[in-house]
Design a protein around this nucleic acid. Structure first.
Length: 505
DNA sequence: CTGGGGATGGGGCCC
DNA sequence: CGGGCCCCATCCCCA
């Protein structure tokens, strides 16, 4: 990103079409003329600043990261980071004084990436550093970087496919709806696409990634109108006021855990960049228009690729696999949200890189991340519905397909295994008492006799274990387990849907 | 249109 | 660290 363009965007309320243009105002306040600024001049100026930084010329700000010293210009840092805006504005009067800040919550390598971005507009993201860069950017309140990271992650995980999940559950066996092939791949079409593109399926994650907003080719066209956008606004990635961090130590100040009560994100794909993009301008105390950066649209370039076409044409790896990789690469930064308890002792919390939510255990964070990645590893064999947790699947199966609740669905009265007859409607089962059964009639219902109640469901369910099992004993023995609940790859959704067994023979 | 209840999703925490 | 339980909030359907 061109930092000058960014600064300009923040002060000129430009529209996306104003790229490269600055409205020059005269004292009267009206726009007198539009002057084209040479992009060459901007990049040269930025290069000069970067050069000065590297030669430590006129650097009036020192940043210590895990013992490594970075020199920079406070002007540039101020313009780029809400964190530094707050930090530097405190010492705004002491312009001559060298300001220093130190961080222990991210690595020097991560800060190098961020600083390089600030001074060059190029953000070098890889699968290995994206989480930490994003976390650091969240820490430093750099919404644009967060947006890029989220887009990077999302495109890697196909998070945007999540919203389409319901849609593709109903897809015909013949495959994909037009326009959705960029998101959904069955095992079959993945291989065919692989043949066609002859490209690595892991290119998203393995390739270096750069972002700049000098173009408008790849807008964040997230779903959801302004209404949903407003909802997302409440899920700011920027630390909440209770999460204000100590400038010197890099640790949060004592206070309540920064758990965002609204952290239950709506499960739609409008997350990601919209979050950052729609960041309230008031989030930055000293940035009245800090959200303008992303507003003009941006171009995403994978190194060696051709932008959007690459994104569309390259099949992604299964979501679960990529999520595993994401989990595996979770850097310690995520776990170093050092909150303080009553005794002023730091307690370890794990911060979600996607939202402000923190948890005590890494495993809980992993579980939480599923609500962002859209992973649903537990499919119901009876109806194909997928769940993020085994317990949810079990609960679903028992209530929907097993009629385990001994309550008459109609009159809500308590029934017994004998008095509450199991009624089957498609894959759905429930119990009716004798009276309600007579009232409703049996015409379009299939009744399970008491001794066979749940028989068809039993092909999926192990009474002892309490969860669905396969009716294929051989398979069960071969696989060493009788579970049919398996952590499956989302990309196999479609083929799975085809294999959902009919409930009634 | 509204309220109630079931289904679902997610967090905390224990085992 | 995963499984599981409990609890609560939200969504959605239906009367």
């Amino acid at each position: 990103m061109d930092i000058l363009a960014e600064m300009r965007a923040k002060t000129s309320s430009q529209t996306p079409g104003d790229q490269g243009l600055v409205r020059q105002r005269i004292p009267g306040g009206s726009v007198s003329k539009t002057t084209e600024i040479s992009s060459c001049h901007q990049s040269r100026l930025l290069q000069q600043l970067d050069e000065q930084r590297r030669q430590e010329l006129f650097c009036d700000c020192s940043v210590m990261v895990e013992g490594k010293l970075f020199k920079a210009h406070r002007n540039v840092l101020f313009a780029s980071s809400g964190y530094f805006r707050m930090l530097l504005s405190h010492g705004a009067q002491d312009c001559g004084k060298v300001v220093s800040a130190s961080f222990e919550v991210f690595s020097p390598e991560t800060f190098t990436v961020i600083l390089d971005f600030v001074y060059s507009g190029h953000l070098d993201l890889t699968s290995h550093n994206v989480i930490e860069v994003m976390s650091a950017a969240s820490y430093l309140q750099m919404t644009d970087v967060i947006g890029y990271c989220k887009t990077f992650i999302k495109s890697s995980l196909d998070i945007s496919a999540k919203d389409d999940e319901d849609r593709y559950l109903s897809l015909s066996e013949n495959g994909l709806q037009a326009g959705s092939e960029s998101l959904l791949y069955t095992s079959d079409n993945v291989s065919s696409v692989l043949k066609n593109t002859n490209s690595s399926t892991s290119s998203h994650l393995s390739s270096s990634w750069r972002a700049c907003n000098s173009g408008t080719q790849q807008d964040y066209q997230q779903s959801g109108g302004s209404k949903e956008l407003k909802q997302e606004n409440s899920h700011s990635l920027v630390p909440s006021p209770t999460e204000v961090l100590d400038f010197k130590t890099g640790n949060p100040r004592p206070g309540r855990p920064p758990v965002d009560p609204d952290s239950r994100l709506r499960q739609h794909s409008a997350a990601s960049a919209d979050d950052a993009e729609a960041e309230s301008p008031n989030s930055f105390q000293y940035s009245p228009s800090s959200d303008g950066v992303l507003g003009g649209g941006k171009k995403m370039n994978w190194s060696g690729s051709s932008g959007t076409s690459e994104m569309k044409g390259t099949p992604s790896r299964p979501k679960a696999e990529k999520a595993d990789e994401l989990y595996a690469t979770l850097p310690t930064i995520v776990g170093v949200v050092g909150l303080f308890n009553k005794d002023e002792c730091p307690t370890m919390r794990f911060k979600c890189p996607f939202c402000t939510h923190t948890v005590k255990r890494k495993a809980d964070l992993k579980r939480h991340l599923r609500c962002h990645t859209g992973e649903r590893p537990y499919p119901c064999e009876a109806c194909g519905k997928r769940f993020t947790r085994l317990e949810h699947l079990r609960s679903h199966f028992q209530t929907i397909h097993q009629a385990r609740k001994l309550i008459c669905r109609k009159c809500k009265r308590q029934v017994t295994e004998l008095s509450g007859r199991v009624v089957c409607e498609g894959t759905r089962r429930y119990r009716l008492c004798h009276e309600c059964l007579m009232e409703a009639g049996c015409d379009n219902m299939v009744l399970d006799l008491p001794n066979t109640a749940g028989q068809s469901a039993a092909q999926y369910f192990d009474e002892d274990k309490g969860w669905p099992v396969t009716d294929d004993d051989d398979l069960a023995e071969d696989s060493g387990t009788d579970l049919i609940i398996q952590e499956v790859e989302d990309s196999e959704d479609e083929s799975e849907q085809k294999e959902v067994k009919p409930m009634m023979s």
